[in-house]
Every structure is written in C-alpha cells, then in structure tokens.
Amino acid sequence: MLALKALTTFFVVSVATAQPVVVAALGDSLTAGYGLPQEEGFVPVLQGWLSEQGAEVELRNAGVSGDTTAGGLSRVEWTLTEDVDALIVELGGNDMLRGVDPAASRGNLDGILKAAEARDLPVLLVGLAASGNFGPDYKAAFDAMYPELAETYGTLLYPDFFAVLTGREDQAAARRELMQGDGIHPSAEGVRLIVQDIGPRVLELIERVE
C-alpha cells in the first residue's frame, strides 16, 4: 500500500513539474511580426496553432526587424540559453534586399547552425526564394544555400517562407489580401496561412527534442 502511494505521488509530481519544450525562433522582421499587432505576428500565431495541436511548447520570439544573417550570427550564442531545446532559423531576406554576397550569407548561416550543433539542438531552417534583381547567378547561389546547409547539418528544412502565398494562382489578389502595403511583409491573413503550412514542420522539430 505504501509503495503504491509513493509511486502515485511520484507520478503526480513528475507530471506537475513537466516543462514544455522551449523553441527559440531566430529571425528578422518576418519572425518579429513587423507591421502587425503583437498577437497577429508570426510567433504568437504559431504558438497558438501549436497549442491547438496539443503541443507542450514555449515559442520564444528572437526576431529583430532589419536583421541580417550576420546579425543573427552575432546573437545566436545569447539566444541559445541553457533552457532552449530547439531552434528555428529564419534569416536571409535582408541580405537579399541589400545584395549581400550569398557566400557571406551562407557563411553566417553556417556559423549559426554550428552553434546549434555544438549544443546538440535540432533545427528547422527556413529559406527564402531570391528575386531576380541581381541576376540568375545570384539567385541560384542564394536559393541553393538553404537546402545545401540543411543537408550538411541534417536539419529540417522549410524551403521558402512565402511558398504558400507565392503558390496561389491569383498573385494580384494574393499580394493585395495576403501582403502588407510594402509588398515585403505578410498581412495577418498571410501569417495565418504561412503558420498553417509551416506548422507541421515545427511539430517535427519538437519531436526531435530528446
């Protein structure tokens, strides 16, 4: 009887003290939720979606508007606090807008993934598709860095943050309804659609946490 009572007490205490998986989202304005009320930004909406799926997770917003891959690399060490269990990396858009050499961007992302690897943290790398403004060679090099780095480090990959929006048949309507006026950042509805599409990959990331 005493043994059963002790076992029951242990079980109750263990459940009560169980901690959610902590996922840091290291990114730029797309992660930070630029131009939207706080509750409609990418991280809060993704947090809500994950909770609806029954995931015990705490998603931390480490997005900084205007940040580049170099800025992400400079922040990664203090972003990865001891309690962080997994990492989402969404960077590169500002590098592309500024015409940063893809080799430099790739090197910065490599440094971020190395930092996560040193902590044995699972990673979801979120890519972007470059515009053709800087020519086909630039676009090819930029687009290739995400899948190649994901393969090198064995990370999960979501190839293009905007894939669910750019894949819509009526692009004029998509830009009008799913993007903000600047044409760069998603609207609240755009964020909701992006979260629904990327959400299953984030669940896979959580499942990789040991």
Rank of each mutant, 00 (worst) to 15 (best):
D143P: 02
A144L: 04
A144N: 03
A144G: 03
A144K: 02
M145Q: 04
Y146F: 05
P147H: 06
P147D: 04
E148Y: 11
L149C: 07
L149Y: 07
L149Q: 02
T152W: 03
T152D: 05
L157H: 02
L157I: 05
Y158H: 10
Y158I: 06
Y158M: 06
P159V: 00
P159D: 00
P159E: 00
D160V: 03
F161S: 01
F161G: 01
F162Q: 05
A163C: 10
V164L: 11
V164C: 15
L165I: 08
L165G: 08
L165S: 09
G167D: 13
R168Q: 15
D170I: 06
Q171S: 03
A172Y: 14
A172Q: 14
A173R: 10
A173S: 12
R175Q: 13
R176V: 10
E177Y: 13
E177G: 15
L178I: 15
L178T: 15
L178K: 15
Q180R: 13
D182F: 05
G183L: 10
G183M: 12
G183V: 10
I184F: 06
I184H: 01
I184E: 02
P186F: 00
P186S: 00
A188Y: 06
A188E: 05
E189R: 12
E189V: 13
G190Y: 02
G190T: 03
G190C: 06
V191C: 01
R192F: 08
L193M: 11
L193S: 04
L193K: 03
L193R: 04
V195G: 02
Q196I: 07
Q196K: 12
D197Q: 10
D197I: 07
I198Y: 15
I198V: 13
R201A: 11
R201P: 12
R201V: 08
R201C: 08
V202P: 01
V202Y: 02
V202E: 03
L203D: 11
L203K: 11
E204I: 09
E204C: 09
L205A: 11
I206E: 02
E207N: 13
E207D: 14
E207L: 13
